[in-house]
Each structure stands twice: as structure tokens, then as C-alpha cells.
């Protein structure tokens, strides 16, 4: 069998970066699915792209800017209306402990 494209440890690392709490079963399923997709994606290696510029926008444009003008904000109430939890006019989040 070929080397796996992605290991369980890598899946765990990526899940942490993406802030997704995955169950053990999910991690394993994810690993094998990502493995299959990455194996498929490997076909890109057949192409020599050394002298090819990357395209980040298909329709090239430059220098789109706005003038420095103040526009009305939305009312505080409108901006907080969707908050899962608030304390007066603040969004409230659980205690922050560093990882």
C-alpha cells in the first residue's frame, strides 16, 4: 500500500487550526476521505508549472480604491441584534485561556 497522503495526526492538527472539535470516528472518516481527495489531486503533479504565473483572479484588475469618506454606521442595536450573548452594548464571550 502507498504512503497515506495525510495522517491522523495531521488531521488532528488541521482540525485544531480550523477550530473543529471532531470525534474520533469523524477524524478517521475525515482522514480516509481527505486521503482519497488528495490522491486524486495528486494528478496536478503531472503538469510542469515552473514557468507559469499563478492566477488569483481570472479577470485581471488593479487599483480599485474608495475615497476616504465617512459613511453612516449601522445603529448599535442593529449590529448587536444577532449576538448569541451580549452584555449591554458588548458582545460577550466565555473566558479566554490561551491554548
Amino acid at each position: 500500500m502507498a504512503e497515506p497522503k495525510i495522517t491522523l495526526a495531521e488531521v488532528e492538527h488541521v482540525a485544531r487550526l480550523a477550530r473543529l472539535d471532531l470525534s474520533q470516528a469523524e477524524k478517521e472518516r475525515m482522514r480516509s476521505q481527505l486521503d482519497a481527495i488528495l490522491t486524486y489531486i495528486d494528478k496536478l503533479r503531472q503538469l510542469d508549472t515552473d514557468n507559469v504565473e499563478p492566477t488569483s483572479h481570472a479577470i485581471p484588475m488593479v487599483n480599485v480604491m474608495r475615497e476616504d469618506e465617512v459613511r453612516p454606521c449601522l445603529p448599535t442595536e442593529a449590529m448587536l441584534a444577532n449576538a448569541p450573548e451580549r452584555a449591554s452594548d458588548f458582545f460577550r464571550v466565555p473566558r479566554i485561556i490561551e491554548e
Binding site: 504565473e53 499563478p54 481570472a58
Partner: peptide
């Protein structure tokens, strides 16, 4: 790599 392949497709 994908962004370079995108150039080829384009």
C-alpha cells in the same frame, strides 16, 4: 500549484 494550473486552464 492550483493557482498555476488555473492559469493553464484559462
Amino acid at each position: 500549484k492550483a493557482q498555476r494550473v488555473r492559469t493553464l486552464v484559462r
